[in-house]
């Protein structure tokens, strides 16, 4: 059913991405590709992988932006982007086949590859560009929030988090239940002013972004300057300078 679930389940799973600590290393994108190319929506096809014009499916892409002013006032912000598992996603409702769906129990948005006809309309309906078409398989693919990892009882409990979260060396990505006010993601969103991307869509993304903290700018250390060098130089160097300046 591509109508949205009317009764929502107990959980609302999503991510919190901390733009203050993200270092832009692309480890989340790499580990996402690694896990998911053999996971629920496998494979994440790469065409022309070892030549020009490579075309591949990725669920997570890391951008780098400049914001907050010009020149030395500008901040460099690394910005990982993936599916936000919206509360009211049009990518689900536009699907004519029922392949695109939102799970009632935890809010995860998934594609049933066996039902997908590859019309690409869901990717047109997503404001965020979270869906990528697999032209080899002829079906749409997207972030599964590592549904095959977070519920995997064969893994130790600490590892039952999405691959992007598990691998982040800066601990800039957090996973949890937004319906639990005491979960880490709820607390971080509350305390750090977590926000929605493009709130004007009305899709109400579940996952939130934490803004960069206000930067503390100190007067930087400056290189030794040439002025006054003559006075501080020794007698011999002053004589050399005088000779050479003649």
């Amino acid at each position: 059913m591509t109508s949205l679930p009317s009764a929502r389940g107990p959980k609302r799973l999503g991510l919190v991405i901390d733009l203050d600590t993200c270092v832009g290393c692309h480890a989340c994108a790499t580990n996402c590709k690694e896990w998911n190319t053999s996971g629920h929506s496998a494979p994440l096809t790469d065409l022309n992988a070892y030549q020009a014009e490579q075309r591949g499916v990725w669920f997570n892409r890391v951008f780098t932006f400049e914001a907050g002013g010009q020149g030395e006032n500008a901040r460099t912000v690394h910005f990982p982007k993936n599916c936000l598992h919206c509360e009211f996603p049009d990518c689900v409702t536009v699907c004519p086949t029922g392949a695109s769906y939102k799970r009632a129990e935890d809010g995860i948005v998934l594609v049933d590859a066996d039902k997908c006809i590859g019309c690409k309309l869901c990717s047109w309906a997503c404001s965020y560009g979270a869906r990528e078409y697999d032209e080899d398989a002829g079906v749409m693919k997207k972030c599964t929030l590592c549904i095959d990892k977070i519920y995997n009882e064969k893994l130790p409990e600490a590892d039952r988090v999405p691959a992007c979260v598990a691998t982040c060396p800066a601990k800039a990505r957090h996973f949890g239940d937004f319906n639990d006010p005491e979960s880490k993601v709820s607390r971080l969103t509350r305390e750090r002013g977590g926000y929605d991307l493009m709130p004007e869509t009305g899709y109400q993304p579940t996952s939130k972004y934490l803004p960069p903290r206000p930067g503390k700018r100190t007067a930087g250390a400056s290189l030794p300057r040439e002025e006054g060098g003559r006075d501080s130089a020794g007698k011999f160097l002053r004589w050399v300078d005088a000779v050479l300046s003649r």
Binding site: A67, N73, P199, P211
Partner: peptide, 12 residues
């Protein structure tokens, strides 16, 4: 609005 970084002031 797409990045939410407009809140830092200035363009992105």
């Amino acid at each position: 609005t797409a990045t939410g970084l407009g809140r830092l002031g200035g363009d992105v």
